[in-house]
Design a binder for these strands. Structure first.
Length: 978
DNA sequence: TTAAGAGCCTTTTTT
DNA sequence: AGGCTCTTAA
């Protein structure tokens, strides 16, 4: 690994021609534009490596900005794997916001910023603005005001310079609100998310020397930059003007956060010599998935045209499934997931499945169905760990410890636990403090010390409580927090422990939440764990440190508490690298936004109806379409869209999304595919896994297992008519197996037609789930055991040894290579058992070839898989009939003639260097714990880690327990005591 | 007058 | 599940 040439080869070997050009480009500005699954991030990462290794850039002089914490983490990991941890730490890599925070905390003094500034999160901002609107009797919606303020900041200086939309005079109240809001933030020494960027721009404009060292700036997901971020990018690059961006205008889904696709043109205009590279091959998805996705995105006539060439075969046709209700939709998804996993005989696991939602609220029926079936899942996006009540309380106390003047935090916790202080009193405090130009904390403190009597009426009892419970606690903690810095034995964890003890938080939770206090307390413990992780992570020390720039004095950022709080504010989700939990048995539920950049073998996109997508509140229909496009292009092998007849809420009928309605019947199958040989093998090829043997599949099928997607009527409008078609022919048999006890518990409100389904499904889950813990085939289990026994599979040197077949998109396939690394997985022995009914049915299925394949592939599917598709055939032709041509202006157009020569000949290759990390950022680990609980997270919202369900081990009892109903009547008469 | 409890409504997407 | 308003209790 020492000779530069070897390095060079290793790095470039994982790239195709266009990617290589992008990586090695000598142009100072490089713009990489490419569709989904074309290896954008891999290319960007490789360029970072290239710049450092080949061009000799100092790692600490390289700035890499991403949009999400997840993307940053993943890129960090990939770079670390190639360049080593030392190097990785030196690179200034993070989200725009976190990088800005680092600069502000190091150099903010120069623009008059107190280095102990706090970060006002969304909830804070909302609360502040709400109060301002109320107080000043501004006749505006707080949410509107908030959006306006944010937009004003995010557009950046360029926007205010050219007053294009000055036409519609902004409401004067908005400006008042803006002003008041900024003053409030300044008073409490806080910055909101946008301020981080705005102030950093100010800093870098006034003090360019702070970034005089920067040699290169690289931006991921460029299409999501907004005006102020564009400005920031330019300023970071001001010394050398070296910028590399990657992006895909079709995947711009953050317009509501003022992302501007126009930034792309702006870049090309302002940096004339920009080298444009487009990556055209899609390595991710089957051709039919791409077809259908392109059908969606091409409805946007104004979009920037790009070429997207499928590398893979047609594969199974995408499915558009219609269901009666959203409850049925959830149950169908459950059944289809089970069916797919069964029929793929261990090739696919739950972790290979994702359910992508337009809005987090849609997850309810799905979670409910998963819960009933005992499937475990993790939720990405949506409700956050840090948003939970009990967590916010702890954090607010900590913020108050950190920032005495944070009135907002104080106001929220002054009556938690209850101290007899209500709204009126709080308001009075706040107003009095404001008049006296002091913070509420000072006011209380002085009052209780008898230094200054408050004019607010405080009953003696209340005063005592304030004094002993609140003030003493905070003062003590502050003393403790001061010791954090000088490396004494005090830790963050001590701090939090002390806090929960002083507050008697456990008892408080028990009293306040008799129903689920255990869960909540466990969450608090989880926060303690997070604090511990944070403290221990060596990253904290190095990562947040900016390189020394000669002669520039930095404020040392050694305030552990402040760092922790900032970290919390800027991390949307708690870190998910959780070593102890087996993720292979969990499927993923995610918002579409949070799924960007990720991929899964199987993707479900439920609720594809008008009002959900496009969302009823959305302003930009094109963006909604792009959102659907992003969701669909996450899928590698199987893509399912579904749509209920009625919306989740209730009675109102719902219409299929206009984005697909025009071609729905042509392009989609009405129900899930038959998993016959060709479908399975085509998926195996795409995923670079070994297709299961027939025996592996059928030997594990439960006796009554239905190999087809026939548990739900294809046309839910017309249930009765399907009776003859065999849809329900098996249902009666199943009913008998139903666990008989719970009938009385059935919810009465359920519509009669729902009843049929749920009975069927519950029964189905009763025999599959209970008999197969973890719902993993025995074959897969044995395979996993065998692999787990083989020690040292993950030698660190593997990436060096793995150059055997170099010309590969390692990053794209690394995910899957992992599974098969080191040769074929050991095949489990084939026990010869009696032929079961399901086996017979399976054989019947096998003899029914290619129902789901298009004619072209039906002829010789195997040959095609082995050799890859002929490039000529691969020229993408959307079903609209118009030929999709490369943009002739682009030099890359010629590439399409021989785009993926390197792929056609090499079916399995070991992963190389940075390809080893999974696209999802989930570290690989031995699959050793299949039997672990399958429903660790029955009803967790928020991004989960270390599911805190504790509780008893899974049992049939819990399975039978109706999944926590969504609107349950609480068990009557909670014994509220005083 | 203030605080606590009960019931109703409404949920976009994220740093 | 949380926020909001209305009602009830002190």
């Amino acid at each position: 690994m020492s000779a530069p040439n070897a390095l060079e080869n290793t790095l470039l070997a994982s790239l195709n021609e266009a990617q290589r050009r992008a990586v090695t480009s000598n142009a100072s500005t490089v713009a990489i534009l490419a569709g989904p699954g074309s290896g954008k991030t891999h290319t960007l990462t490789s360029r970072v490596v290239w710049l450092i290794q080949q061009m000799g850039y100092e790692p600490s002089n390289v700035v890499v900005a991403t949009f999400t914490v997840k993307a940053a983490r993943e890129m960090k990991q990939r770079i670390g794997k190639t360049l080593g941890p030392e190097c990785e730490k030196k690179i200034v890599l993070g989200t725009f916001h976190s990088i800005a925070r680092r600069y502000l905390s190091a150099y903010g003094k120069r623009i008059g910023l107190d280095s102990k500034f706090g970060i006002a999160d969304d909830a804070d901002s909302r609360a502040i603005i709400q109060r301002i609107c109320k107080r000043h009797d501004l006749n505006i919606e707080p949410s509107v005001a908030k959006a306006w303020i944010s937009k004003t900041k995010a557009r950046g200086p360029a926007a205010s310079a050219n007053p294009t939309n000055k036409k519609q005079q902004d409401h004067p109240s908005l400006k008042i609100c803006y002003k008041e809001y900024q003053e409030h933030l300044a008073r409490s020494n806080q910055l909101d998310y946008d301020d981080l960027l705005v102030r950093c721009v100010e800093l870098l404009q006034k003090h360019p020397s702070c970034v005089s060292n920067v040699e290169a700036v690289l931006i991921d997901e460029y299409q999501d930059t907004n005006g102020i971020q564009y400005e920031l990018m330019k300023l970071f690059a001001q010394a050398r003007q070296r910028i590399t961006i990657v992006g895909d205008p079709d995947q711009s889904i953050y317009g509501w956060r003022s992302a501007e696709i126009r930034n792309l043109y702006r870049l090309l205009r302002e940096y004339k010599n920009t080298h444009e590279v487009s990556l055209q091959e899609n390595y991710r998805s089957s051709q039919s998935i791409l077809d259908v996705s392109l059908n969606v995105i091409q409805q946007d006539k104004k979009r920037y045209q790009k070429v997207l060439l499928p590398v893979h075969s047609k594969g199974a046709r995408p499915v558009l499934r219609k269901l009666k209700s959203s409850a049925a939709e959830g149950e169908w998804i459950v059944s289809e997931v089970k069916r797919a996993i069964m029929m793929f005989g261990g090739m696919l696991k739950y972790e290979d499945v994702a359910i992508l939602l337009r809005s987090a609220a849609l997850s309810r029926q799905i979670e409910s169905a998963l819960g009933k079936a005992g499937m475990s899942y993790r939720m990405i996006g949506g409700h956050k760990f840090y948003d939970r009540k009990e967590i916010k309380v702890v954090l607010d106390y900590l913020r108050l410890v950190h920032q005495p003047d944070n009135n907002d935090a104080l106001a929220r916790i002054i009556n938690v636990p209850r101290r007899g202080i209500g709204e009126a009193t709080i308001k009075s405090f706040v107003e009095e403090a404001e008049k006296a130009k002091m913070s509420v904390w000072d006011l209380l403190w002085k009052h209780c010390r008898g230094i200054r009597k408050s004019s607010t009426n405080i009953r003696i009892k209340v005063e005592q409580k304030l004094n002993t419970e609140l003030i003493r606690t905070i003062v003590n903690l502050r003393q403790k927090a001061d010791k954090l810095k000088d490396g004494t034995a005090v830790t963050l964890v001590d701090l939090v422990d002390q806090l929960t003890k002083d507050l008697n938080l456990k008892k408080y939770l028990e009293e306040e939440y008799p129903e689920d206090h255990e869960q909540r307390w466990a969450n608090v413990q989880e926060l303690v764990n997070l604090a511990r992780d944070f403290e221990l992570s060596t990253a904290r020390l190095d990562e947040d440190t900016l390189p020394e720039v000669d002669g520039l004095e930095q404020t040392k950022d050694d305030d552990a508490l402040g760092q922790f709080l900032a970290n919390v504010a800027l991390a949307s989700d708690a870190q998910i690298d959780d070593a102890e939990k087996d993720k292979s048995s969990m499927l993923t539920i995610s918002t579409i936004h949070a799924a960007k950049g990720l991929e899964w073998p199987i993707v479900f996109v439920p609720a594809v109806y008008t009002g959900s997508i496009p969302h009823s509140r959305a302003e930009d229909e094109d963006e909604e379409r792009r959102l659907l496009y992003v969701a669909m292009t996450r899928a590698q092998a199987l893509l399912y869209l579904s749509c209920p007849l009625y919306s989740s809420q209730g009675q109102s009928k719902v219409e299929l999304s206009p984005f697909i309605s025009s071609f729905a019947s042509k392009a989609f199958e009405p129900k899930g595919p038959s998993f016959n040989r060709s479908v399975v093998e085509s998926a195996a090829t795409i995923l670079r896994r070994d297709a299961p043997k027939d025996e592996d599949v059928f030997k594990n099928l439960p006796p009554m297992f239905s190999p087809e997607d026939d548990l739900f009527p294809v046309d839910p409008n017309n249930v009765d008519a399907t009776e003859g078609s065999g849809q329900y022919s098996r249902a009666p048999k199943r009913q008998r197996m139903s666990s008989g006890g719970d009938d009385g518990q059935e919810t009465a409100e359920e519509k009669p037609w729902q009843r049929e389904y749920s009975t069927t499904m519950e029964t189905a889950s009763a025999f599959t789930m209970s008999s197969l813990p973890g719902f993993v085939t025995a074959g897969a289990h044995r395979e996993a055991l065998a692999r787990a026994e083989k020690p040292l599979q993950k030698q660190p040197a593997s990436r060096i040894a793995s150059t055997r077949r170099p010309a590969d998109q390692a990053s794209l396939f690394g995910f899957f290579n992992k599974e098969t690394k080191g040769g074929d997985p050991p095949k489990p022995p084939q026990p010869k058992g009696p032929i079961s009914m399901s086996e017979a049915r399976y054989h019947r299925l096998l003899s029914n070839p290619g129902r789901n394949l298009r004619p072209e592939t039906e002829a010789e599917p195997l040959a095609e898989h082995k050799t890859g598709i002929d490039p000529v055939l691969a020229k993408h032709k959307p079903s609209t009939g118009q030929v999709f041509r490369p943009n002739p202006a682009k030099p890359e157009a010629t590439d399409s003639k021989r785009p993926y020569a390197c792929f056609s000949s090499s079916p399995t290759r070991p992963s190389s260097a940075d390809g080893a990390s999974r696209p999802s950022g989930i570290p690989d680990k031995p699959i050793a714990s299949f039997h672990e609980t399958t429903f660790t997270t029955m009803r967790t919202t928020g991004s989960i880690r270390r599911p805190v369900g504790l509780g008893p081990p899974p049992s049939m009892d819990r399975l039978r327990k109706p999944f926590k109903p969504l609107t349950i009547n609480r068990p009557s008469g909670p014994p509220s005591k005083k």
